[in-house]
Design a protein around this nucleic acid. Structure first.
Lengths: 167, 167
DNA sequence: AAATATTAATTCGCACACAAATTAATAATG
DNA sequence: CATTATTAATTTGTGTGCGAATTAATATTT
């Protein structure tokens, strides 16, 4: 039996624990989605990004979803093999690839439920406005604090503007 | 080019975006750790769990880390192949496997840095105490809200006590 | 004691997710 | 124009992560 052996946890460790639970909950939900509608969370995410601009390039999708191009490629492979998505090399610049939803893809996307449990969203939406804002800004603050370190050669960034490089 | 196309994002979408950034930051740090000290975040996590109770069973480690037994097994495989960890079947109940750190494992763990970026931790520790508590409790609240949905047959759970099943 | 159920761990198949290397095409420079 | 650099996407290799199926061992029931 593993006990907590009395060692009091640092606050940042508590943070990490909570974070892991959230991550796990999201992942479990994604797998649940996959069983129910045949689309995982990341797949839905990518399809939604495509929806926003039909014919988007891979890199644009990557920027928009905060995923790497390599990851996008593999997700697109699976979507394409199921004919939910269509790739078409750009004629003017043959390095680029335009990605489109097929009719089946559009239909699948429309049929898909929310990305988090409706219960969660409902519960979140039921919170008072200031509570929602507090949670959102807390997450954003954490993201900023973490992200700033990723770019380990840019000590000049201000906390308030770390996000979105250029979209 | 993907633009935000003016569609104002829902608050819960903003939340998810921030969450994804945090998740990504953690993952990137894990890969950075791997390059620097040869141990990923999850590997460190598992080794720490073992430290708390030498000879822990796989299931106990899984409970304690919020990971599935299958995941623990694969992580242990890699740790064992590098002789950082040792598996020994229990003699009384031969279904059970005790997991131990080797001397090399103990040394590697001691030499390993934190699982979150040190810059982040420093910055976090610099926050006022109430700010730290606010961030931690915000995350815990999210975890509770999301976790409650996972157990999709338990509408009775109160928000405040969803965590730790039994550890 | 024999049949059945439960439990622990592993194996298998799948889907991320990234960095690094590669390929192909375009842009910039001499 | 030829060489070099940059850019876009893919391929390759590694490491998570899970559920479902499997194997082996222990408990329970009949």
């Amino acid at each position: 039996m593993i006990s907590d052996s009395g060692g009091k946890m640092e606050k940042h460790d508590e943070l990490l624990v909570a974070l892991r639970k959230v991550i796990r909950a999201i992942d479990l939900h994604s797998k649940q989605l996959e069983r129910q509608v045949g689309l995982t969370g990341p797949q839905l995410l990518v399809m939604r990004a495509i929806t926003r601009f039909n014919g988007a390039m891979v890199k644009e999708i990557a920027d928009h979803t905060n995923l790497s191009p390599a990851t996008i490629t593999s997700i697109l492979d699976r979507l394409q093999s199921r004919e939910l998505v269509l790739r078409q090399r750009c004629t003017e610049d043959k390095r680029k690839v335009g990605v489109y939803l097929t009719d089946a893809g559009i239909k699948a996307l429309q049929a898909a439920p929310q990305m988090l449990q409706e219960h969660f969203i409902r519960r979140f939406d039921d919170l008072k406005d200031w509570e929602q804002s507090l949670l959102v800004s807390s997450m954003q603050r954490l993201a900023a604090m973490m992200n700033a370190e990723q770019l380990d050669a840019s000590p000049l960034l201000e906390i308030g503007q770390v996000d979105k490089p250029k979209l």
